[in-house]
Design a protein around this nucleic acid. Structure first.
Lengths: 190, 190, 190, 190
DNA sequence: GATGAATGAGTGTTCATTCAT
DNA sequence: CATGAATGAACACTCATTCAT
């Protein structure tokens, strides 16, 4: 048995991401992806059960990458604000470095496919982040409100600001990123 | 000649919104909409130039409704924080009252169709909101940062919190809504 | 009872002919014709039983016009060759003057609709022409071959030569028309 | 992978030709062709880019066959009249043997599709025929008139006479074919 | 007489997926 | 493993025609 060609799978994923960004989820078909990836449509079904599986797997893959990037330089012994700031900076770094992946992630998360994803599985990768928030509440550094309310003022503003389509007039640089963080921090700190 | 039956157009819009919420944008076809609206597919093309036109027009209609709802009880002479709080409450009221419309709006805004919309036209309806922010900055009540940064901490957290799909574990009531507002306010105030 | 608006009917016929020439029979729809004629699709059904009736009636109308034009200056007492030459010139005059009608006629005659036409009815209008041929045979001026063979060397070459689409490189003027007639005449004369 | 089934393509072409003859160009739809060919509509799009491509390719294929048939027994050293007579006989042979193809060709040539064909490409196959005419003029055997005028008295009468729909009352046999040729020859000879 | 609204049936084409090689 | 051929079902959209006014 030959081994599955990893370069082919990567080509498929890249094509998927690129195409979704170019023409959107609805217009994205398996054969168009195959064309762009320079493989046969049938080949895609070797690597993925079906179209849904391809789209979902790609999403999960990206989410994993994001969680890994977010945790770079994570040191739970540093001051609470600094830890959050590191997350924040890492998030923007990811959005800049892997912009296509980032936009795919957003389109996916707001599509009907999102309902089909096992989010508990994904949340595991973000566990350290939730741990930090939990300690922050316990140590009375941040407000004692539900997690979802906290993330609504940390994660989502970040996602919007990092989304070039939604924020056309805002240039992202270390200055604006810092500024934005001060808003996020003010929102949640006690 | 027969006169245009307004109830038909309403049925088409309702069916569109409902279907997008049920099965998502990508899976939403003209004939499915027609079936749900109890009209012939051809009838849809009397009221709309094509599928794109139907989806965009529906989006704009909803945006208009939202802007109108946001401005209820708007009184520019009240204290700045109160004005914002009124916007905030109106936003959640809209999301509760017209939940389907709200979810449609979100899916649309994150789809590829969003690029086809003339956003300047829509922004006009939200002008009073931007005026308020502008005055807030001038009067040194809120932080002097770009508009898009301010809305990222007011509008978008609201949209996330009001989106039942994204925030499954958060019950919205006047208490949580007030609490969330205090975070938004802390984010932007000086 | 109001009287049928003759100008409307003319507009419909003109639109039909123009559209068939522009986009061809297959692409020609009732609503497109209605648009071009500036009437409602329903109006067409006041004047014609259905689309087929419209197309056929238009064809017959044109054929009638052609037969009338062919008979201009017809004088059975003139020499046989002169009579034919008059037919010949009249034919080219018609094709030049009513070029759109001419091309419509050709497209129609070669389409499947042609089978639906009562050709005996049309042939009546061309009876004088056949009479002339008959006399020509009797007087041993032209070859004694079946009518259809004679027309194949008079009518059809004329139709081809007068069809700008088929004969792109041939300029029609009195000289070339005369020249062509000499070929036709040589073909049939004894 | 499966290999392209040549019999399928042939079935598609046959169905196309047959259907055009039965119901005409305008009424001829892809799904009807697919039904008659016993393939899925989608299969047609494996062999042809679209409907237009199918119709045009079929036309060109037939034209090529015709040109090959016309050139059977072609010997440029025989007397000029004999060469033409051989063309003439070959033409009628083709029209009899491949009557459906012949009628398809005629309908196509008089439809709007004809404008989309690259006629220079087709004319190449008929080059020997034009060569013969050219030599005939040079050797002062036939009249010195434009090519299009000559073909109008050779090709087109032949096409009409061979078209059973246009010439219902004329039986084609070697006698009538010879007779008709004498008219054509008289038309063009000096 | 004249109209635009309304439609079921159809259009050409693409879809996600499977099959044979 | 990898492929292009093959497909039934669906797609967005237009058709010829009728209806109510």
């Amino acid at each position: 048995m030959r081994i599955k060609d990893e370069s082919k799978q990567k080509a498929i994923i890249n094509a998927t991401v690129k195409l979704v960004n170019e023409i959107g989820f609805a217009a994205c078909s398996v054969s168009k992806i195959a064309d762009l990836a320079n493989v046969s449509p049938a080949t895609i079904y070797i690597y993925y059960k079906n179209k849904e599986d391809l789209l979902i797997s790609t999403f999960i893959e990206i989410k994993k990458m994001l969680s890994e990037t977010l945790l770079v330089n994570f040191d739970k012994n540093r001051p609470f604000r600094d830890i959050l700031k590191t997350f924040w900076d890492n998030g923007f770094r990811f959005s800049a470095k892997y912009h296509d992946l980032y936009l795919y992630m957003e389109q996916f998360a707001n599509s009907a496919f999102n309902d089909l994803v096992n989010h508990d599985e994904i949340d595991k990768h973000f566990a350290p982040f939730f741990e930090v928030l939990k300690r922050g509440i316990e140590q009375k550094v941040i407000k004692d409100v539900p997690f979802e309310m906290l993330t609504a003022f940390i994660f989502y503003p970040m996602m919007i600001l990092a989304n070039s389509k939604q924020c056309k007039n805002l240039t992202l640089n270390s200055e604006t990123i810092d500024k934005a963080f001060s808003l996020a921090w003010d929102a949640i700190r006690l």
